[in-house]
Design a protein around this nucleic acid. Structure first.
Lengths: 348, 348
DNA sequence: CATTTTTTTGTGTTCGTACACATTTATAAA
DNA sequence: TTTATAAATGTGTACGAACACAAAAAAATG
């Protein structure tokens, strides 16, 4: 078992003082070529790694981090995120990390912009945000860049030169998974339908990706001869619109709902006693899980918002405090949930 | 955003020296009632939390941890564990944690006992082990208890008073999941079979749990009228035995293999062109994944050995170094894998 | 009241790193 | 060679907690 070398050890071995070693490590210059060479050689030979605990104690900085995410009161999908953040707060408190959660209305770009301004006034060291609105997000990201505030994102990926930290999922692939699951469940020939619900705000990229993925699965399958339909439903006429659609399409064998509102679809299907239609949707909302256990919904794809929020924070702190190298893009595994494995995912 | 109070801050506020505050915090006595009360009150009021970084630097202990796990050369199931351990080693090195991996032969209880003895001579601070053999594990656990060595386990749960740290999965539930998946895939009436392969060494508890879970799913379903068969296969007559079984049972609709050797079953099924039999098995061995992508295997249940090993270590270190409260039993979510979501799980 | 003993409180050092500042050595200009 | 200047190297302290030891205050004894 290897000894842990300190700066002092290196200094003694090189016959210099710790100050010189320190200058080499941080290449601050003011070191003679001879000393530089000898110390660098030693450093690599010995595979010196600074004691991160000591380094951190010295730096002793209190990091202020803001989390900006959609208000779970408006869309319950985001509710688990607050738990993930709560966990991060507890865990990171002892390392001098202050985390403040700020909420915005996911149906209102103005709210998003406003809250970002508020955060920018507070000048935190870093921001973790959900860039729900593409245009507005690009705008605020530039601002953060100017202010020298590190930004990390989760759930929604955004293409920006200034941002390079993202925790989320591959949505195209998650669409393919839905397709695979529905195809496997199918008992007879029949059509599939992709349902988008309440698409009034611009999370369209989400659904587009999922739809593309879903369709791509069938493009590859030469055997498949049925249709892939698309159906956009909006409240308050949701129910009547959907019933109309169902009446028009009698050969449905599977439904893919691209959001966590799948329970609304399940509710209607359940009442129609159309029992050979499989349903796949997203997220472990209590309503969805109830339908899953009842058997109305066959599979849920878990986007793991809690873990996304937690990891976005955790990785950011590992980066800030412990210089851990973080992948720019962390794509979480896509969990397939049925009535039997749902339980441990709920607590988690 | 709250200020981080130090011992010195508390001391000043209480009008005493840091030594006295320190004595109160560690209740070492030698403090007057008056001072004790004032300081305790302040401590709770302020919700003082010691700076774990500073505490650790002072303690400055090098922790030696041994990991004892089955040799992946003998059973490739364990191969991902070494990656998980490797990650832990890299990550924890900078915190003064030395991790040494020791392998034993999973087919040989003597090897297990021997390696445990070797570890006990080294006197590490903690041991992470896979208690593959029930009786022998209980024996070595007592020894560790005597030596004051903390033990954490993963993959196999063991019922012992001395051990209270486990990372793994609920195997009963994973059997149920297999049942649910196969039942969902079934296109027509037919029987199911549970296949146990190469059960020469005592991981029987594993398979028993999985079998029980699998059966329990159908016990609840009143609709199910077919049979659940069981079939034990052993090398070297594996293939002939299995073909014999298949010839005898023509009404099979699904196969559940209780280990990672499911690819061996898939191989045979594939060659028999019996195309309406679904297969569910365990673990992301390359052979299994190949069959999954080809379509011979429908679902794999991911036991996540890599993550299990990593988390067992990580949690142990969080406990030793940062006093993080760790749940005695961490049951990882059971991941359902198909050809579409397999990719991110492989790297992970 | 003086002295001893016990109890209580305060001070100083350490952990390893980072950085400011002091000191020494080498080089250039007088 | 002497002095001025720059380059290189060394020293000391802080971060916050922990603990050993010194010091002071209180209590017990003569």
């Amino acid at each position: 078992m290897k000894k842990k070398y300190t700066i002092r050890d290196i200094a003694e071995l090189a016959g210099v003082s710790k100050g010189t070693v320190d200058r080499v490590i941080h290449n601050r210059g003011k070191v003679s070529k001879k000393a530089l060479e000898r110390i660098t050689k030693l450093l690599t030979e010995i595979d010196y790694e600074p004691n991160l605990i000591a380094r951190n104690l010295k730096n002793n900085k209190v990091y202020d981090i803001c989390v900006l995410m959609p208000d779970p009161e408006v869309d319950p999908y985001w509710s688990p995120c607050t738990d993930g953040i709560k966990n991060a707060i507890i865990e990171l408190k002892a390392f001098g990390v202050n985390i403040l959660t700020v909420l915005f209305n996911p149906q209102c770009t103005k709210s998003f912009l406003n809250e970002n301004e508020n955060i920018q006034i507070m000048l935190p060291d870093a921001v973790v945000l959900v860039p729900l609105f593409n245009k507005e997000s690009l705008f605020v990201l530039e601002k953060y860049e100017e202010l020298g505030i590190i930004v990390s994102t989760f759930n929604n990926r955004i293409n920006s030169a200034t941002i390079n930290k993202f925790v989320g999922q591959d949505l195209f692939q998650s669409g393919r998974i839905a397709a695979k699951l529905l195809y496997g469940l199918r008992k007879s020939e029949g059509d599939f339908v992709i349902i988008h619900i309440d698409e009034k705000y611009k999370n369209a990229i989400h659904m587009q990706e999922k739809e593309k993925g879903f369709k791509s699965f069938f493009d590859e399958s030469l055997k498949f001869k049925n249709k892939i339909l698309t159906c956009k439903l909006k409240h308050p006429n949701f129910e009547s619109q959907f019933n109309l659609f169902l009446n028009e399409h009698k050969y449905l064998t599977g439904i893919f709902v691209t959001t966590s509102k799948v329970y609304q679809v399940a509710e209607i299907i359940k009442n129609r006693t159309q029992h050979n239609i499989s349903i796949v949707g997203y997220d472990l909302l209590p309503e969805n899980v109830a339908h899953l256990k009842e058997g109305t919904i066959d599979f849920l794809i878990h986007q793991n918002p809690k873990q996304q929020a937690y990891l976005a924070l955790k990785y950011l702190v590992d980066f800030l405090l412990f210089e851990k190298e973080i992948p720019n893009e962390l794509l979480l595994p896509i969990d397939i949930i049925n009535s039997e494995n749902v339980e441990p995912f709920m607590g988690n």
